[in-house]
Computed example of a mutant assay.
Amino acid sequence: MHPSPKRLISRLGLPLLGLGGLAWAATAVLGVPNPVTLAALAVVEPSAAGAWFASRPVAASRTPRILTLAPRPILDRVPWKDTLVPLGAMLAATHTNALLVTQDGVLVHEWYRPGFDAETSFPSWSVAKSVVSLLVGRAIADGRLKETDHVSDLLPDLRTAPVFGRITVGDLLDMTSGLAVPENYDPWHPLVGTAGMYLTRDLRAFVREHAVLSSSPGSTGQYRSIDTQVLGLILAEVHGRPLSDLLSERIWRPMGAQADASWNLDRPGGTEKAFCCLNAVARDFARLGLMVADHGAVGSASVVPRRWIERIETPARREVDGWPYSAQWWHVPEGDEDISAIGVYGQYVYVNRDTGTVIVKLSDHGAEQDEADTLAVMLAISRDLRRR
């Protein structure tokens, strides 16, 4: 949900591109993508960034869940920054590429900006964190994990770092690990913090090299993308399989995804960027939200244990950066009992069971920009649909 590395990449990639052959050697030493990739990442829209990284496929279902399409009017004037504006104006202001609304399991609104459509694969950015949570819930139900497990007991290559003997799976889930990998980037040091984790070609080494605490584990809620990355490493370790394969087998196919997704890696054949970078069509993000809204089920089949959905829907003891939070999902301030997965550039999978509404919004908006205002719009749309 926090600031993006794009502006910082431009500080590194564009100057390096001008150094010719030296640039290629420099990026190899730094362990980051080559100069051409860095330069591209500095200028492309966030929705196009995934194509510049290696990825691993996430196979879809052979029998996709049918999404009934029954268009109906939705709220055409929405609350926006203390006034009412046309919905279209709000979508334009937030650089929206896709907006899907379901009501009681029916797709009642589907809109794409020109250049995007139902076949477009959209990047999740930090919505992927909420997907990782669902995989953790499955692993806990299967007896492979406990929230009280310590990281060092699950990841052998981190046992030499004492801090990982203090951090539990539960700390990672609720963003209370205390790991000192900040989301707020220093413009003059683009290889540190989450920007560095986004660019590294060795995520496992990055985690090992950042075994430093800024607060005692469990004491403070601070949004840290490294927490989700460690969860991703744990899932791959306890299952002995790549995260993409787990997602396909345990969620993507069982929930009835219509299209193969992909998950970006740190390098070809490498490790998934668990904290971001799952690429999927908008309707499959909607199917994900519908499954969560249905208590983790699709029809009569349980995909994610109901108990885990209840865990997600119960705010954790510590807020994260001033917002209620639980197991990698955000709770909407001053809303209904609604929750949302949120990505840095305006990606949302919003679930409001009180109104029977799921909303997917995929954008190229500014980092962390207008999140509370956008969620207020989704709440207004949901309540209006329930009244109609």
Rank of each mutant, 00 (worst) to 15 (best):
L173W: 00
V207R: 00
H365L: 00
A51C: 02
Q222G: 07
L145Q: 09
A39N: 03
W24S: 09
F206A: 04
V292K: 04
P333H: 01
P114E: 05
D321V: 05
R7H: 11
L67C: 01
A297S: 15
N279M: 04
P3R: 08
D227N: 15
P15D: 06
L385F: 09
E209D: 15
A26K: 00
G269F: 12
S219N: 08
G50P: 07
E368Y: 13
R224C: 10
M90D: 00
V304G: 02
A301R: 14
F116L: 04
T120R: 06
G115A: 05
W188A: 10
Q229N: 03
Q103R: 15
V298R: 15
L22E: 13
I309N: 06
T102M: 09
D321L: 07
D171H: 15
S214G: 12
P86Y: 00
S302D: 03
P86H: 03
P254N: 05
L173D: 00
I251D: 04
I140L: 14
T228G: 14
L69P: 01
S124I: 02
S10N: 08
V101I: 13
A380T: 13
A376W: 03
N264T: 15
Q369P: 00
M90G: 00
L67E: 11
A367C: 01
D384R: 11
A51M: 00
I9F: 12
V163N: 06
P123K: 11
G105A: 13
Y350C: 07
A59K: 14
V358K: 11
Y198Q: 02
P64T: 13
I226D: 03
T220E: 14
S152E: 12
I312W: 07
E110C: 03
D384P: 00
G299R: 12
M175V: 05
V358G: 08
L135T: 04
A280E: 03
A89T: 13
Y185L: 14
G165Q: 01
S302V: 15
T200A: 00
G335D: 07
L69W: 09
W252R: 12
A280M: 14
R283L: 03
T160A: 14
G299N: 09
H189D: 13
D266P: 07
F206D: 04
A92H: 07
T374A: 10
K146H: 14
P217A: 08
C276V: 07
A60W: 02
V298K: 12
E368P: 00
A297N: 03
D336R: 11
G31E: 14
D202C: 05
V192G: 08
V230T: 05
I167E: 10
F122T: 11
P324T: 01
E147L: 11
L172D: 02
P57D: 13
T271M: 06
G270R: 09
V292P: 06
R353D: 06
K6D: 02
G18W: 09
T96C: 13
P182T: 08
S130R: 03
G115F: 04
E183W: 09
V292N: 07
I381C: 05
D149Q: 05
G346P: 14
W263M: 08
V131W: 00
G346Y: 03
L265G: 12
V212E: 15
Q258F: 06
D384C: 08
R7M: 12
H2L: 08
D104L: 14
S326C: 07
S326Y: 02
L288G: 10
F206Y: 15
G13V: 15
